Computed example of a mutant assay.
Amino acid sequence: MPLDKAKIKQSFAAAAVTYDGVAALQRTVGRALLGTIDTEKLAGTLLDLGCGTGFLTSELLGFCQPIVALDIALPMLQLTRTKLADTPNVSYLCADAEQLPLAGQVVDGVFSNLALQWCINLEAVFTDIKRVMKPDSRLVFSTFGPQTLQELKTAWAKVDDYSHVNDFYSEQQLTRFLQLAGYTEIAVETQLYVSSYGSVLALMKELKHIGAHNVIAGRNKSITTKTVMQRMIGEYERHRANDLIPATFEVMMVTAS
């Protein structure tokens, strides 16, 4: 996928101060992700990859320490550090998940909540994660699937031919990337979450506030006109029901070792 890594970093850095106020879905998915594993068996050093403002980091601390919290956006990482200032067993790394600054076989497990979809080369990411994990460790992560924001994507497609909504890998593609990286035991659970909004603009504002708006490389650089935006909103309004518009998020929760 032609993602712009510099724009991803910039978007999440800018969203740090607004993220927690609108990240209900991320918290819900994070709890569901923890629910897929036996937390009583967690032991050793865990890596929270793409920690954001530290929600999953904090949850993991209830089961296991120490934790390495890693994020590409320094403001996000600083917020996590501030929240966990009284917790001694957390290390902080500002780094790209696609270039892990860690030695081989140093962590006992890797967790990532709705972050890996912003990586460009997932096969390489999965290979590097396997490098830093000790033998028999597990990678546990959630990521968005291709049905995510399908209503918004359909509405834009009726207006022009540009890419306005990010694409996401399918279960089959994720499984293939993991297999190519050397994982043999792979389990995937898929669930659809539907959030409701009073308006299309409210949805788009939320996406911006969590840093998840369009980060596609090579997209249309011209400013979207008011007329085009109104046409897109009109198309999206066809989905309105009970005075609210829906937004679908397909979430895949994956365990691999």
Score class of each variant (00 low, 15 high):
residue 117 Q to Y: 06
residue 32 A to N: 15
residue 210 I to E: 12
residue 136 D to S: 14
residue 133 M to V: 04
residue 102 L to Y: 11
residue 99 Q to L: 00
residue 51 C to H: 12
residue 244 L to C: 06
residue 178 L to F: 09
residue 11 S to C: 10
residue 251 V to D: 11
residue 70 L to P: 05
residue 169 Y to D: 11
residue 71 D to W: 02
residue 243 D to V: 07
residue 23 A to I: 03
residue 36 T to M: 14
residue 159 V to I: 05
residue 2 P to N: 15
residue 255 T to W: 03
residue 113 N to T: 07
residue 119 C to K: 05
residue 6 A to Q: 10
residue 91 S to E: 10
residue 196 S to E: 15
residue 182 G to A: 04
residue 86 D to F: 13
residue 192 L to V: 07
residue 173 Q to Y: 10
residue 207 L to Q: 13
residue 41 K to N: 13
residue 131 R to A: 01
residue 152 L to D: 07
residue 150 Q to W: 07
residue 167 D to P: 06
residue 67 I to P: 01
residue 243 D to H: 15
residue 131 R to P: 02
residue 101 P to R: 05
residue 190 T to A: 03
residue 105 Q to E: 11
residue 55 F to V: 06
residue 87 T to R: 11
residue 92 Y to Q: 04
residue 110 V to H: 07
residue 225 T to G: 12
residue 104 G to V: 00
residue 115 A to P: 01
residue 100 L to V: 00
residue 176 R to L: 14
residue 72 I to H: 04
residue 65 Q to H: 11
residue 232 M to R: 00
residue 127 T to S: 08
residue 163 S to M: 05
residue 35 G to T: 02
residue 228 V to Y: 00
residue 57 T to K: 10
residue 190 T to R: 00
residue 17 V to M: 04
residue 128 D to L: 04
residue 195 S to K: 08
residue 193 Y to E: 07
residue 94 C to E: 12
residue 51 C to V: 06
residue 249 F to C: 05
residue 71 D to I: 03
residue 39 T to L: 13
residue 239 H to G: 03
residue 232 M to L: 00
residue 186 I to D: 03
residue 26 Q to R: 09
residue 129 I to G: 05
residue 16 A to T: 04
residue 243 D to Y: 04
residue 215 V to K: 08
residue 64 C to D: 08
residue 226 K to G: 07
residue 196 S to K: 12
residue 226 K to Q: 09
residue 211 G to M: 01
residue 49 L to G: 00
residue 25 L to F: 15
residue 45 T to F: 02
residue 22 V to I: 02
residue 50 G to S: 05
residue 219 R to C: 00
residue 87 T to A: 10
residue 95 A to I: 09
residue 143 T to Y: 09
residue 133 M to A: 01
residue 208 K to T: 02
residue 105 Q to G: 07
residue 64 C to H: 02
residue 17 V to H: 13
residue 79 L to G: 03
residue 202 A to W: 10
residue 181 A to M: 04
residue 110 V to T: 11
residue 48 D to T: 09
residue 208 K to A: 03
residue 154 T to S: 08
residue 92 Y to A: 04
residue 98 E to C: 08
residue 85 A to N: 06
residue 256 A to L: 01
residue 198 G to P: 00
residue 125 V to S: 08
residue 49 L to R: 02
residue 73 A to L: 01
residue 237 E to V: 07
residue 233 I to L: 08
residue 20 D to N: 14
residue 92 Y to E: 06
residue 83 K to H: 14
